[in-house]
Simulated scan of single mutants.
Amino acid sequence: MRRFFDFSSSMSHFLGVYIYGPNRGKWWHSCAIMPLWKLGRAIHRRKLRLLYRFHPSYRFHMIDTGLKPGPHMGERLILHASFSILMNSMKIRFDTLDRLETETRDLEAAPIGNNSPELIDHEVAFRKEMIQLIRWWTITRPADLAHAKSLADLVYGDVYMVERIDEKTGAKSLEIFPTAPEHKGQKKELRALRKKIAHEETEMLHRLIDIKGGLD
C-alpha cells in the first residue's frame, strides 16, 4: 500500500497526488498540494540532517562493505561497496524486499488515473531491475559461492597419493596429486561455476550502474 506522502524521488506524492504528474499547474495543486508538500519536505530535510549527523545508520558517506577486516582486491571492494549502496537504498525506501515487491506489483496493477503512464512505467521498470539485482546478491550468488566452496573442499580437501616402486632399485616413492581420479568431473564443474560467478559479478555490476540514477 502506498504511503500518504513521499519526498524522496521523481514519484513524490502527497495525499495520493503525484507532485510531478499531469495535475501540476492546476489551481488546487498549486494552492493546496504543493505548499503542503513543500512544508513537509522542509521538515523532512531538517529531520534527515539530524539523522545524518548523529544516527549511525544514516551515515551514508561511509560504506559498510560487509567484508571481514583485512586486505581485499579492488574488484571485490567495488562489488561489495556498490551492492551495499543498493541494499541501503532499498531499506530506506521500502524497508524490506518483500515490501518492495508488493508495492511494485500494486503500482503496476493500480489504475493509472491522473498519473503519468510514462512515469509509472519507468518507476516499475526501475523497481523490477532493483528486485532482480537484490535477489541475485542475496540469494543466487550466495548459493553459487556455497556450492563452489563445497566442490573445492571435495576436490582439493584431501590429497590424492599413489605409491610408486622403482622396478630397478625397488625404492618406494609417493606421487601426490591434488585431485583424486573420481573427482575430475567435480573439478571441471568447479571451474565452470567460478567462471559463471565472475561473469555474473561483472554483468550485475554493470546493470547496477545503469540504474544508479534512481538510487536514494
Rank of each mutant, 00 (worst) to 15 (best):
K188V: 14
W136H: 06
G25Q: 08
F177T: 07
A42W: 04
L154P: 05
K168T: 12
E123W: 03
E118D: 15
F54P: 08
M87T: 13
A81T: 05
R207C: 08
K195L: 13
Q132I: 00
E167M: 00
G214S: 08
F7Y: 13
L79Y: 09
I211W: 05
Y156W: 11
C31P: 03
V162R: 15
E163F: 06
H80N: 15
L39R: 00
R141I: 00
R24P: 11
E118K: 15
L39W: 05
F94H: 13
T138I: 06
S57G: 13
G70R: 06
S84Y: 02
K47T: 15
R141D: 05
T65A: 04
K38F: 06
A42K: 04
C31W: 06
A198G: 07
S84R: 01
H55P: 10
F7L: 01
H122V: 08
E201Q: 15
H61A: 12
E163T: 14
I85T: 09
H55D: 13
L107V: 00
E129C: 09
A109L: 12
T102N: 02
K68G: 01
I211S: 01
G185W: 12
D121C: 13
L50I: 09
T102V: 04
E167D: 11
Y20F: 13
Y18E: 07
V162Y: 08
T102Q: 12
S10T: 07
F60H: 13
E203W: 05
D98F: 12
R2D: 11
R76W: 00
H72R: 10
R53Q: 09
K172L: 08
R46Y: 11
F7D: 02
F7Q: 00
H206L: 10
F126M: 09
P111S: 06
Y58R: 14
A171R: 15
C31K: 14
D106Y: 11
F177Q: 12
T169V: 05
S89L: 03
H183D: 03
P69G: 05
K68R: 14
K212L: 14
D216M: 15
E200W: 07
H183V: 02
V162H: 08
E203T: 14
R194I: 07
L205S: 04
W28Y: 14
P111L: 04
H29R: 03
L50Y: 06
G213V: 11
K47E: 07
I112P: 05
I176V: 09
H72S: 09
A198S: 13
L36Q: 04
R191W: 00
F14W: 05
Y156T: 07
G66M: 06
K187M: 12
G40S: 07
M11Q: 06
R207P: 09
P22L: 10
Y52E: 14
S57K: 14
R99Q: 08
E163G: 08
